[in-house]
Write a protein that binds this DNA or RNA. Structure first.
Lengths: 248, 248
DNA sequence: TAAATAGTGTCTGTAAGACAGTATAAA
DNA sequence: TTTATACTGTCTTACAGACACTATTTA
């Protein structure tokens, strides 16, 4: 530390507020990935009280020299054992949960994040215990939402799903759950998994094509069927938005 | 505290994490209101270092027994002197700002909130110093965004405006900036102030009418012109969304 | 050739944007 | 009667949804 910055810090210390509550801040994660036509989320099972044995979101304390988003990336790597250097992952802030009684042990404010992992739409990335003991495991979202979860994590998971489902109406964020190059059918599969519905393939192609970049290349056709065009997507606004089919 | 809850707390204490950073958490506010056809925001001028004399968002520390949202309501009342018991106000969480260097004095995580005050579209609610010394004052949003602000508050204000502008495309949240009963022209004025544009009155009426509830009553016509129908709005999704005119 | 998938064409209904025209009330 | 505002009607264009049809590949 130079003399100047030391003097500056002393100067600033004089303006530091004297009294304020010191609160523990965590970064929690709603991790989504598409496997075998369904949406999955990575959850840990709690080993200690409270809520021992129940499902919880991965997460942990925000360190004193990192932002909540940096902590989210770090916890994602630690609790899933995923190599984030190689796996494409999209992380964005979801919301902050701050009810004073949400953790019965102590005051904890949680900054929840939405993390989207890229898959081929069929097989899920393998999860393994990282530095922590508890390993995360994949659970089908639309089923696990029926079950109770630790703390207010069921509400956070629900909020995360709502955010993703809504954002897919007016952005190309769904492409973040696929490899860099993907087919129209893969992208439609993501929409169908998240929205828990089916979409007409022809109309989906017509509406989505102008929002994507065509690489000009095609897949090797698999078992039966014509080869599909490969697209890429930059994060972009869809205008006008895709209409999610009404469920009501 | 009963014997049982005391025993339970001791039990939970045994599971309390031993080490974690204690962080100061604030609730900051982006307060919007429409006056004389333009969008305004309530800002305080800093009296102490750092950023002495610059504009900042109203806000303050989250107490140990309140949520961030409760703190936002409390700070809104304290720093603006507004009687929230009588003035309709909509508060929702915006985002959490947690860069470790965002306050040079100490580690502060801020949960920013968006607050919308109801006006008649012409005169702004009068602000007065509450319990704190510094009083907030109204500033035109689209002008003050050009100026520097304290901390990262300029970015927060920008995020708040983007959130409001976007949400008005697909919800009736704009009605939260008006009295419970309002005319179509008043509502269009809110859209024009926030989007900083002009909208065709006839088409706006046709698109918005089915999203609102007609009270059946009309205004006393002011200086020239026919009396306007009075509408109310419940928080509702607009489907399909209104298209905000492209600025690019 | 049969099956499976990719992609296009067509039809219909609805609604957006532009804007002219009508209705109501104050000055 | 003029003016100002509120509101409706009409025309054109565009696109969503439904779905039939063609194209391309593997078995």
């Amino acid at each position: 530390m130079t003399r100047d910055t030391k003097g500056e810090q002393e100067f600033l210390d004089a303006y530091k507020p004297k009294e304020y509550p010191a609160i523990a801040v965590t970064a929690d994660l709603v991790v989504f990935a598409v496997g075998s036509g369904a949406l999955y989320t990575a959850l840990v099972r709690r080993g200690g009280h409270p809520f021992k044995g129940e499902l919880a979101l991965p997460g942990g304390f925000v360190g004193s020299r990192e932002s909540a988003e940096q902590a989210a990336y770090r916890e994602l790597a630690e609790e899933t054992g995923l190599d984030l250097g190689h796996l494409p992952v999209h992380v964005e802030q979801l919301a902050t949960y701050s009810h004073p009684e949400r953790d019965p042990r102590m005051r904890v404010v949680s900054v929840a994040h939405l993390a989207l992992l890229a898959t081929d739409g069929h097989s899920l990335p393998e999860l393994s215990a990282g530095t922590d003991a508890a390993a995360a495991e994949w659970h089908p979202v639309h089923r696990v939402l029926e079950e109770p979860m630790a703390f207010d994590h069921a509400a956070i998971l629900r909020d995360g799903l709502d955010r993703l489902a809504g954002k897919m109406e007016y952005t190309t964020v769904a492409a973040r759950m696929l490899p860099r190059e993907f087919t129209m059918t893969q992208l439609r599969t993501v929409y169908e998994a998240v929205w828990n519905t089916t979409l007409a393939a022809g109309n989906f192609t017509r509406k989505m094509t102008p929002q994507l970049d065509d690489t000009g290349r095609k897949t090797q056709a698999a078992a039966g069927g014509a080869p599909a065009s490969l697209f890429t997507a930059s994060d972009r606004h869809i205008h006008p938005p895709l209409a999610k089919p009404r469920t009501g």
